[in-house]
């Protein structure tokens, strides 16, 4: 067992090393991302600021509260960009037959796929998210108690798992349809809009769907509601933040199953 874990870790670490080396081969890419990413997400937080400033709190959420919600959501987005951006490429992997290589190695394909690339550029996202989050913590006088720190950590880990799993499940559609790259963009936009604004500005059925069908609301909305003491419209027993990591793990297992189901349909095109 321990031997096995050591084996998986050593393989994963070597993959990480290779992805780091690969990215340093393209410095222009890194530099432009360092400029672009803060700009893209700066627009999101600025929009909220100007709206509250020129109009009123949105759905009863003040700017510091909105920034807190935005920060939690964006942190898990950043980490997702680091660890599972390759979901984006499932389509091209399928079209170019890149899964052949993974299928030929005596390791779980899902494991290889998960560790095959670490997008270190995504750390820029994490950094931007962290800045917004810490800034909002100051604005709302967040109490840095051990309980709160553990809560935030679990919420973010759960959020990353939920996000990655949603992408894996939807992008695996490419195994059947040969297409899913544009689905990645669609999901990315959807996740952005639903994790950065309070769900309460949307109709009830949207929130219902995003709670029980695609559990996006657990990434940032419900945890933020609880920490900030806001009304989340739908009420659950137990602490809200307990659900995020649990749902994250369940989603991850589902994603693994769905991916493997798709792999059976893999046609190894391209040569």
């Amino acid at each position: 067992m321990l031997e096995n874990v050591k084996y998986y870790i050593s393989v994963a670490l070597y993959y990480f090393k290779l992805s780091l080396q690969k990215q340093f081969e393209y410095p222009a890419m890194i530099i432009s991302c360092v400029f672009m990413i803060p700009m893209m997400y700066g627009t999101g937080i600025l929009l909220l600021y100007f709206m509250v400033h020129n109009f009123q709190p949105l759905g009863g959420w003040s700017f510091p509260q909105l920034a807190f919600l935005f920060g939690i959501g964006y942190l898990s987005h950043g980490l997702m960009m680091v660890f599972s951006v390759q979901n984006w490429w499932i389509e091209s992997y399928v079209l170019r037959g890149e899964f052949d290589r993974m299928l030929l190695r005596p390791l779980s394909v899902f494991f290889q796929f998960t560790v095959t690339y670490i997008n270190f550029i995504g750390l820029v996202d994490v950094l931007v998210g962290l800045t917004i989050f810490l800034y909002s913590c100051k604005l709302i006088n967040f109490v840095w108690s051990l309980h709160n720190i553990i809560t935030i950590a679990f919420v973010i880990i759960g959020g990353v798992l939920i996000r990655s799993s949603i992408f894996t499940i939807f992008c695996s559609v490419a195994f059947w349809t040969k297409r899913s790259e544009s689905l990645f963009l669609l999901l990315n936009d959807m996740l952005e809009r639903t994790t950065q604004y309070p769900m309460t500005i949307y109709p009830y059925f949207v929130q219902f769907m995003l709670t029980f069908i695609v559990p996006i609301a657990f990434i940032s909305f419900y945890p933020a509601c609880e920490i900030l003491g806001k009304d989340g419209r739908i009420v659950f027993p137990l602490e809200m933040s307990v659900y995020t990591p649990i749902i994250g793990i369940v989603m991850f297992i589902l994603a693994n199953m769905f991916f493997n189901l798709g792999l059976k349909k893999y046609e190894s095109a391209g040569s």
Partner: peptide, 19 residues
């Protein structure tokens, strides 16, 4: 199956771990 951007030996090292 070789890593395009990296030296050949890097792929060997990876395979050494995988197998």
């Amino acid at each position: 199956q070789l890593y395009w951007d990296l030296r050949l030996g890097e792929t060997f090292e990876l395979l050494k771990r995988i197998y």
